[in-house]
Simulated scan of single mutants.
Amino acid sequence: MDANRRVIEQFRAGGEIEGMHRDRLLLLTTTGRKSGNPYTTPMMFHRLDPDRVIVIASDIGAPTHPDWYLNLAANPTVTVEVGTEKYQARAIPTAGPERTHLWTMLKSHYPFFADHEAKTDRTIPVVVLERAESYSPGT
Rank of each mutant, 00 (worst) to 15 (best):
T29R: 03
S58M: 08
I56L: 11
V80L: 04
A74L: 07
I60T: 07
M20W: 14
A89Q: 01
G15C: 08
R47P: 06
Y87H: 07
D49V: 06
G61P: 14
S35W: 12
T120A: 12
V7S: 07
T29K: 06
Y110W: 13
L70C: 10
V78Q: 05
V126M: 03
M44G: 01
T30M: 10
R6M: 10
L72P: 10
T79C: 12
Q88Y: 04
I92H: 03
N37V: 00
S35C: 04
R52Y: 02
T31N: 03
E16W: 02
G83D: 12
P125N: 09
L25T: 11
R33D: 05
L27A: 11
I54F: 09
V127P: 11
P42H: 06
T120Y: 14
L25E: 06
T64P: 01
R6P: 04
W103F: 08
Y39C: 00
T123H: 07
A114H: 00
T64L: 13
P63C: 01
Y87S: 03
D59A: 15
K119V: 04
V53W: 08
L27R: 04
I124G: 05
T41Y: 06
E98I: 10
A91D: 05
S35Q: 08
H101T: 11
T100D: 15
P38F: 04
K107R: 14
T79D: 10
Q88K: 02
A73E: 13
L28D: 12
T77S: 13
D115H: 09
R122S: 13
L106P: 08
P63H: 14
Y69N: 10
